[in-house]
Amino acid sequence: MRSPGAAGRSTRARILDAAIQRFGRDGFDASLRAIAADAGVSAAAIIKHYGSKEQLHEACDEYVLGFIRDNKRTSMNADDLGAAFMSQMALLDDYQPIFLYVMRSYMAGGEVARHLIEHMVTDAVDYVREAVERGKLVPSRDEEARVRYLVGASVGGMLMAVMREDRDLPELDRDFWRRTMHGMALPALEIFTEGFLTDRAMLDEYLLYIGDPPQSEERSA
């Protein structure tokens, strides 16, 4: 995540960075005046570059979704998955504004949360399909259903960690996000890599119950 006010940053980019961080800390009712002060510009400059606070919010969503999509696509399609994963983990401190913004969006609920989650699922279906085609991931009988489950597990895990803290969202520091992500990494990787059940009895019984999932014929073709 880029830092507002960094040397060489354009006014438009500084505004976007400041908005992501301010919305994450204070919520989407944060004023243009506060965002402008963070970016070192006037409120009029925000209107000039983004048109309105609503359009600025949309631009923040677009940036955050693109950031997540690009990082996931890069790591999942890397030749060395282990090295790519550890490179991402080494950058957790830099991702704090993104974590905060995403959590704020989830906790806002309503259309704000739905918009972000649905776009995350759509993006994930694409980059997971690419990774399956490259032989990096095992194919699924129903790829979209699997992606929705994985996104839901990630969202739920992060929300649970936030809710367990006796602190407000803006007070969660880098140490919290490091502990949270490392706390999720081991069990997730164990399940993804080694599995969970010792046999496939439950899956076989469920497949008999529901019949062929929508993508099963395409998968076996």
Results as ranks from 00 to 15, higher is better:
A7N: 00
A7Q: 05
A7K: 11
G8V: 02
G8W: 00
S10F: 09
T11S: 10
T11Y: 01
R12E: 11
I15Y: 06
I15M: 04
D17H: 06
D17L: 02
A18V: 06
A19Q: 10
Q21F: 00
R22C: 14
R22G: 05
F23Y: 13
G24C: 04
G24Y: 03
R25D: 15
R25A: 15
R25Q: 15
D26I: 03
D26L: 01
D26R: 10
G27C: 12
F28W: 09
D29I: 05
D29P: 01
D29L: 08
D29C: 02
D29M: 03
D29G: 03
A30N: 11
A30Y: 12
A30W: 13
S31R: 14
L32E: 04
L32F: 12
R33S: 13
I35A: 10
A36Y: 14
A37S: 12
A37E: 13
D38W: 15
D38E: 15
A39V: 12
G40V: 03
G40M: 01
G40R: 05
G40K: 04
V41T: 02
S42I: 09
S42T: 06
A43H: 13
A43T: 11
A44F: 08
A44E: 04
A44P: 04
A45T: 14
I46P: 08
H49C: 09
H49I: 09
Y50E: 13
G51C: 13
S52K: 09
K53C: 14
E54H: 06
Q55L: 07
Q55P: 02
L56T: 01
L56R: 07
H57L: 15
H57C: 13
E58S: 00
E58Q: 09
C60W: 14
E62G: 01
E62D: 11
V64M: 05
L65N: 04
R69H: 15
R69V: 09
R69C: 13
N71Y: 08
K72W: 12
R73C: 04
R73I: 03
T74A: 03
M76Y: 15
N77Q: 03
A78L: 02
A78Q: 03
A78N: 04
A78Y: 15
D79V: 07
D79E: 06
D80L: 04
D80C: 09
D80T: 00
L81M: 05
L81Q: 07
G82V: 05
G82R: 10
G82M: 02
A83Q: 10
A83K: 15
A83D: 05
A84Q: 11
A84N: 07
F85C: 08
F85R: 13
F85A: 14
F85V: 10
M86G: 08
M86W: 10
S87Q: 07
Q88Y: 02
A90W: 01
L91N: 12
D93C: 08
D93L: 12
D94T: 14
D94C: 15
Y95I: 07
Y95Q: 09
Y95V: 03
Y95G: 03
Y95H: 09
Q96C: 14
Q96P: 00
P97D: 15
I98E: 11
I98H: 00
L100N: 00
L100E: 08
L100Y: 03
V102W: 10
M103Y: 00
M103S: 03
M103E: 00
M103G: 02
S105R: 05
A108T: 11
A108Y: 07
G109T: 10
G110I: 10
G110Y: 06
V112E: 11
A113I: 11
R114W: 13
H115R: 14
E118D: 08
H119A: 05
H119P: 02
V121R: 14
V121P: 00
